[in-house]
Design a protein around this nucleic acid. Structure first.
Lengths: 147, 147
DNA sequence: AGGGTTGTAACAGCTACAGTTACGACTAAG
DNA sequence: CTTAGTCGTAACTGTAGCTGTTACAACCCT
């Protein structure tokens, strides 16, 4: 069973990335390069660029090209919640219905889809509510406290 | 991007399976075969048997072997919540930390793990709280209402 | 003109789930 | 005690997503 490697670490990486940029900017730098971030995250710069591309599309980050290029925040850390980040990078729902449509002749097969959808909607809503409670400012505060 | 096919449909299948057995038993039958269930779910009997194996390990279902064999519920539908089912079949957490440990020399790389873990624990708790609200009896009621 | 960085395509490796086939283990029924 | 039906499980394939990597064109400041 081991640790579930398939679980999404994308939210972790995204939060790490944005928090890193935020701290870097507060220390007086204009932009951060994907290489610098990748060093802190311990991964490949392309992975960071791909993620930041999605975050930019969602209006959370921005980039400059050419020499002296790099990435910056589009909003302050305090104005970005983990929900914003989550919605920027996680397209699909947590739970899915059947792949193949179940037997419509069967009472259960016919009615189970809507029944589970109602539950899943509530679960997703609760998850979003929880993620919205924490801003990247909160995350940075926790990070600095631990140091 | 499309609809996320990778999302877990296991909870859906498991709820469908147990609800089907419950209804079948209420109609006077002792046991249900994996083939019958697979027909309603529209999948392969082995998929059902594998799932039911995990559900049995969690004390939610039971089986009889030999001729006239099959599956039955270990508890009444009203005594099984979706959280029970979820915990029986989903081993890992929804979100994961970094695969490779981030740079411990970096303030963010050092502190981001615990910070995100705290958030993820809260999210998981909220998810469990939400799943615990619904029993399979509730699911069956919804299913029959839709018919 | 030069050099550093983004933006993106392409590919390999890994993991997980779904689906399928096959077959031994078990047991009720005859 | 033989038969038949079902479970229990291993093994394999196909599909999909994420990660990591290489490569290179596009871009733009100096």
């Amino acid at each position: 069973m081991e640790s579930d490697v398939s679980a999404n670490s994308r939210l972790t990486i995204a939060a790490h990335t944005l928090t890193w940029i935020g701290l870097y900017q507060r220390r007086g730098h204009e932009v951060a390069t994907s290489e610098q971030i990748a060093t802190s995250v311990n991964t490949n710069p392309v992975v960071i660029r791909r993620l930041l591309g999605e975050l930019r599309k969602a209006g959370l980050a921005d980039s400059r090209r050419g020499a002296g290029a790099g990435w910056m925040l589009a909003r302050d850390l305090a104005a970005i919640t983990l929900l914003d980040v989550y919605q920027a990078i996680e397209p699909g729902p947590i739970f899915a219905l059947h792949r193949a449509t179940p037997d419509p002749e069967c009472v259960v097969g016919h009615g189970i889809g809507p029944a589970m959808t109602a539950v899943y909607d509530d679960v997703e809503a609760a998850l979003c509510r929880e993620l919205a409670k924490t801003t990247l400012e909160d995350v940075l505060r926790d990070v600095l406290k631990a140091a």
